[in-house]
Design a protein around this nucleic acid. Structure first.
Length: 319
DNA sequence: TGCCAGGGCGCCG
DNA sequence: CGGCGCCATGGC
């Protein structure tokens, strides 16, 4: 399933050669783990990227140099992402996978500076400018469509540690085991890919209940059924003309409303204008923006702006 | 212990 | 269509 995700119609400068875009070198550690090292990378904070509520599969892991490092699975592979200042090292990838998968996943081809400028230029709101500055390490990952849909169905009325736990459990029970280098395997233990829709259909809704999905069990099951039968075509969702039409398609799944659809589109379908509204965003908007607020006024990167505002309100704890 | 969690459904007026 | 109780579960 993860192979079918297309990387066409990328915004930004995706088709440029990687070497002209990033200051990058490839190598192999003494213990045989291949890696990609990117230097002079601005506007990327690993902690913020993996801990701002957009992804639930990456966890911080210890390393000998006491630098920030997160490890997780995407596209059926396990990587870790370490950061030391403006140097980012991705372990568990060769040059081919890096260019084919991880540049896209990590959004390293995304012109973040232009997007930030675009957001700020659309408003003279000082709080927005402050939020954009405060969250300058945030990037929007381009996650897998199916896993993202399920992740945000699971997220409803739930807390982040338990969302992580449920995704980990369903992967361990119904996903296939992910192979990686002995060095990474020793550090990470056994890791599993997120299960396919077919695997979930075969397991049945009761299996999901046994895994403590609660009232979300039939939601996940319905999503799996609709996707595996072709009733919901995720590539068609991606190809939808507008973000509103794409959301409409996703909301045919039980348990998918406007918020879950917007998160799914923003984090899994490269819809940078999708604008999820939860209690935090609602609060920050009521506090700083004159009514009536229109997300479209923030432009084609409104979703990124939403992340800045969410992060600003949620983590700065402004009152 | 009780409140809350990056909501949505079903029902009710 | 706007408001509201309920939904499973466990983190804090």
């Amino acid at each position: 399933m993860f192979c079918k995700q297309n990387t066409e119609n990328r915004k930004g400068i995706y088709n440029m050669p990687i070497n002209s875009l990033l200051d990058i070198e490839f190598g192999v550690t003494e213990k045989g783990t291949s890696f990609a090292k990117i230097k002079n990378l601005d506007y990327f904070d690993v902690g913020a990227v993996f801990d701002c509520g957009q992804a639930f599969r990456f966890l911080p892991i210890e390393n000998s140099t006491h630098t920030v490092e997160f490890g997780g699975v995407a596209f059926g592979k396990y990587i870790t992402v370490a950061q030391d200042g403006n140097v980012l090292t991705v372990y568990g990838t060769d040059a081919e996978d890096f260019e084919k998968i991880w540049v896209n996943y990590l959004g390293l081809d995304f012109d973040i500076e232009s997007a930030r400028n675009d957001i700020v230029s659309r408003s003279d709101n000082p709080a927005l400018a402050e939020a954009v500055e405060y969250g300058k390490g945030i990037r929007i990952l381009r996650q897998e469509m199916w896993e993202t849909l399920c992740s945000f169905i699971i997220s409803q009325n739930n807390n982040i540690p338990r969302i992580r736990g449920l995704i980990s459990t369903i992967s361990r029970n119904l996903g296939t085991k992910v192979e990686c280098s002995a060095e990474l395997s020793e550090r990470a233990g056994d890791v599993y890919a997120f299960p396919t829709p077919e695997a979930i259909v075969n397991a049945g809704v009761d299996a999901l209940r046994d895994m403590k999905f609660g009232f979300r069990a039939p939601y996940i099951y319905d999503a799996a059924q609709k996707v595996s039968s072709g009733e919901l075509d995720l590539l068609a969702v991606r190809a939808a003309k507008t973000t509103a039409e794409a959301a409409e398609m996703l909301m045919k799944v039980k348990g998918v409303g406007p918020k879950v659809a917007a998160c799914t589109l923003l984090f899994g379908f490269d819809r940078t204008d999708a604008f999820p509204v939860d209690v935090w965003v609602k609060r920050v908007i009521e506090k700083y923006f004159p009514a009536p607020f229109d997300a479209a006024s923030l432009g084609s990167y409104a979703g990124l702006a939403q992340q800045y505002l969410f992060y600003y309100e949620r983590y700065l704890g402004g009152n």
